[in-house]
Design a binder for these strands. Structure first.
Lengths: 201, 201, 201, 201
DNA sequence: CATGAATGAGAGTTCATTCAT
DNA sequence: TATGAATGAACTCTCATTCAT
């Protein structure tokens, strides 16, 4: 099981410095999602944390780095989680179910992080080196496996990957804007069913 | 006959308010999509057009208004187009096919506009009064009709609406990032097929 | 009798150009008094008149000149009026009464002009060449005459001049801010009485 | 012992927020009186102080607030002083003498502040809540007291208040423009005498 | 580690003025 | 004469970042 952003039990054991750094990260995440990266000032972040502007630079080299750390660490960590839950299952259907569940869990546990990684900043993923696995790669791996194993019909794997992602991300978006009221995890079976129909599994 | 230093055509172009306004709109659209709204400065826009910063304010009251005009006009007009092509067809399948085609046409004719309306700024749609129909409304209308007519099974219309939109928008995104090479219109039948499977039509 | 800013009967006989110029002057006067010189833009003036910005420059070489014309013409003309009414009277008391009446008449006929000349822009008077008579000069002449003729006791004429002006201008100010409700002309005898006590006439 | 490049005194001066704030206030006061509020730019102020433009905003939220702080603080405090010196005296004549002296003292000690409060920005006093006592109120209180006590004849207190103020302010103005050479305090007895004649005390 | 005054660059915007039409 | 698009300089203000303390 992955730890999103910070685990409470470790925080207790840590010194103030580490704790401040995590409070900065969390405040930044919240504000970046709420107002956007450019619209969030260093002062917005530090005054939310209750420190002065200069203090932030003890923990992060700058605003860009802060945003990037926030993104890349968690983006990679979520991709790893996706692959981990997929590898544990055999058969396309089970794998899709497991991945959908992982998406829903992330959303329900930490909607801000979900938004930041997958809706707001997901165009930042181009900055990652190609060797790093992203959530998109994890889904594509699943799709390609499914085609090679004959679980689903052969087709352009990129189109199928995008379609599957699209279903989950757009439903998440609808949930954020209040058009859908149920938590994502409550809908995981429905979402899985839709995904399997998309893939004709 | 006198030969002016500037040809009449050039002079007309320089002095014609309409034309300048449209060149500003287009430059702004391009830059907003490329770099984002906040990251695009007035100077970026005007120097792309070849005018000074102050000149922009004869055509738009400010940066926000420029972005909003760009968004609202085209967003509403695309929603109208979606409804128009849908109304012309009977049956859920035909209606979905027509709407998918409209999405693909917009994308291929003007990918920047597509991105601006549906990927970059689509969260601005909340600022529109509820009486105005958006593309999301157009898709939802189609879904609700399909359920009422028995063309598709009853389910949460919001989830289905989001899923259908997700398929199209995420495939468009993959195309923009170069993961897919075919034009969207070339894939319209595939996209329609996926959408119909999503809806179990 | 002097004509403040423009006489209606002449305006009728004039061409559009002259009439526009006077409408510009009047609009500028109003706005300068209401909002201040720096806070009034060319656009404020021209849109009040109903012409475009460029058109103003057919009538005035620039904003500064417009303000200066407005000030100097009327300031001198009012100084002339003051001297005219004073010369007609013999004895300090009669002269003061006549001048107070002239101040009150200007205020009641054209409070904006009064404010502009005597309250708002009166520090511009330093730009006038010393050979030109100002309202302050007119009052000082009266004071000096009164001292030389033995109508009033000898003292620093500048202090007395300032005091007399102060009484009139500050009462006018109180009237503008609504602290006094009567028209200035209604109070002219009271004001004259106060002025004569100031001068110990 | 280490000798720093900048002496401690200098370093303290540069880093001491209080001191900088006061230097900004003083520079602004000087410039507002010399050139007017609108004609004074932030750059004018900060370059007079020897800091950059942005630094001003750590001490004041903006230009308007700076001007307003400058005005309201000192305006109220001078009104309090006026009332204080008046309360200490019995009888209209003594009270007027005390208040005239207070005006003269302010003028001679800080002519810029006098100008700013009473000549340049005094129309800002309308922005103060009615519960706050202004110098005008202080003078009016004295006038009303004098009438009620029978020290001076009954008349419109607003007219008398304005007249008394007018004498002092216009003499101060004449002094500023160099028409009068004596310091105001040197003339305080003359001014008092004039004021008493105005009020027929 | 934290403070917060200061920097310096750049943001959006306004405005007096010009000039081709 | 009038128009109004365009200029160019100035404006107020914001912000990421630095650094003496």
């Amino acid at each position: 099981m992955i730890v999103y952003l910070h685990s409470e039990f470790r925080a207790v054991a840590l010194r103030d410095g580490r704790e401040t750094k995590e409070r900065i990260s969390r405040a930044a995440l919240t504000l970046f999602v709420q107002k956007g990266f450019a619209e969030t000032s260093i002062r917005d972040i530090t005054s939310a944390v209750g420190i002065t502007e200069g203090a932030l630079y003890r923990h992060f080299p700058g605003k860009d780095q802060l945003a990037w750390d926030l993104f890349s660490t968690n983006y990679i960590s979520f991709a790893t989680e996706l692959t981990r839950v997929r590898i544990g299952k055999s058969g396309f259907s089970e794998q899709v179910a497991a991945m959908v569940e992982a998406f829903c869990r992330l959303f329900d546990q930490d909607p801000e992080l979900f938004s930041y990684l997958l809706l707001v900043q997901h165009n930042e993923s181009g900055k990652l080196p190609d060797t790093i696995k992203t959530p998109v790669d994890a889904v594509r791996d699943c799709v390609i496996d499914g085609m090679e194993n004959g679980d689903i019909p052969k087709a352009d794997p990129e189109v199928l990957t995008a379609s599957l992602l699209g279903v989950v991300l757009q439903v998440a978006t609808a949930r954020i804007y209040g058009r859908i009221e149920k938590g994502l995890s409550e809908m995981k079976d429905d979402l899985t069913a839709i995904c399997l129909r998309v893939a004709q599994a």
